[in-house]
Deep mutational scan, measured.
Amino acid sequence: QNEKLANELKSLLDELNVNELATGSLNTYYKRTIKISGQKAMYALKSKDFKKMSEAKYQLQKIYNEIDEA
């Protein structure tokens, strides 16, 4: 289960640069939040902690959705 979550989180991290570029014309909230979420996700992957990875995955998905809707 950890392996599956780690792969999903890696996949979301692969999209980080594209989504970060998409924040160029948006409010600074999005820029700041996506950077923080990305850092948390990288830390969670290194720690291999299921709870941290779950939270990081949720945060990344949430900010990606917010950027898409903005």
Results as ranks from 00 to 15, higher is better:
40 K>S: 05
54 S>F: 09
24 G>M: 14
25 S>P: 11
35 K>V: 08
14 D>W: 07
67 I>V: 03
70 A>Y: 09
36 I>L: 10
39 Q>I: 14
12 L>N: 00
19 N>E: 05
12 L>S: 01
28 T>G: 13
39 Q>M: 12
9 L>Y: 01
39 Q>W: 13
1 Q>I: 14
70 A>T: 04
63 I>D: 02
61 Q>F: 04
32 R>Q: 09
43 Y>M: 13
52 K>A: 11
23 T>I: 07
67 I>D: 00
69 E>L: 14
45 L>W: 07
38 G>H: 09
22 A>K: 15
26 L>C: 09
44 A>P: 01
23 T>P: 04
42 M>H: 09
16 L>K: 02
46 K>N: 07
60 L>A: 01
15 E>P: 01
49 D>F: 02
20 E>W: 14
19 N>L: 15
48 K>Q: 10
50 F>C: 07
57 K>G: 02
64 Y>K: 09
2 N>Y: 15
62 K>H: 05
42 M>R: 13
16 L>Q: 02
42 M>N: 04
46 K>Q: 13
6 A>L: 08
13 L>P: 00
9 L>P: 01
10 K>W: 05
65 N>C: 13
7 N>P: 02
24 G>V: 12
30 Y>S: 04
13 L>E: 01
48 K>M: 14
8 E>L: 05
64 Y>A: 05
60 L>W: 02
43 Y>V: 13
54 S>M: 14
62 K>D: 03
21 L>I: 12
20 E>C: 14
11 S>I: 12
4 K>L: 11
36 I>T: 06
16 L>E: 00
38 G>D: 00
8 E>M: 05
13 L>G: 00
63 I>W: 02
10 K>N: 05
51 K>I: 11
67 I>F: 04
1 Q>K: 10
50 F>A: 07
19 N>W: 15
23 T>N: 06
16 L>I: 08
30 Y>K: 02
7 N>D: 10
69 E>C: 13
50 F>P: 13
11 S>W: 08
3 E>I: 09
5 L>R: 01
9 L>I: 05
62 K>E: 05
23 T>H: 06
52 K>I: 08
25 S>N: 14
38 G>L: 15
9 L>C: 03
27 N>V: 05
57 K>L: 15
4 K>T: 07
67 I>K: 02
2 N>L: 15
33 T>I: 13
51 K>Q: 12
3 E>Q: 10
8 E>Q: 08
47 S>A: 07
45 L>P: 00
58 Y>Q: 10
60 L>S: 00
66 E>R: 06
11 S>V: 10
23 T>D: 05
35 K>N: 05
15 E>I: 13
36 I>D: 07
46 K>V: 08
43 Y>I: 14
57 K>M: 12
69 E>K: 12
35 K>T: 07
53 M>F: 01
21 L>R: 08
70 A>E: 05
16 L>Y: 14
12 L>G: 00
12 L>P: 00
49 D>N: 08
27 N>D: 11
44 A>K: 01
5 L>G: 01
40 K>G: 03
46 K>P: 01
14 D>G: 07
6 A>I: 12
37 S>N: 08
17 N>E: 14
38 G>A: 14
31 K>T: 04
4 K>R: 11
37 S>F: 12
45 L>V: 03
52 K>H: 05
6 A>V: 11
62 K>W: 06
45 L>C: 04
5 L>P: 01
35 K>H: 08
58 Y>R: 10
57 K>R: 07
51 K>C: 12
43 Y>D: 15
56 A>N: 01
43 Y>C: 13
10 K>T: 04
18 V>F: 11
29 Y>V: 03
58 Y>L: 11
5 L>V: 06
12 L>Q: 00
25 S>T: 10
62 K>N: 05
25 S>C: 14
33 T>K: 13
68 D>A: 15
49 D>S: 06
26 L>K: 04
23 T>C: 10
44 A>T: 00
22 A>R: 15
12 L>I: 03
37 S>Q: 14
23 T>A: 14
14 D>H: 07
26 L>T: 03
15 E>K: 15
24 G>F: 07
58 Y>V: 10
14 D>N: 09
31 K>D: 02
26 L>M: 09
27 N>C: 14
48 K>T: 03
41 A>T: 01
7 N>G: 09
21 L>S: 06
37 S>D: 03
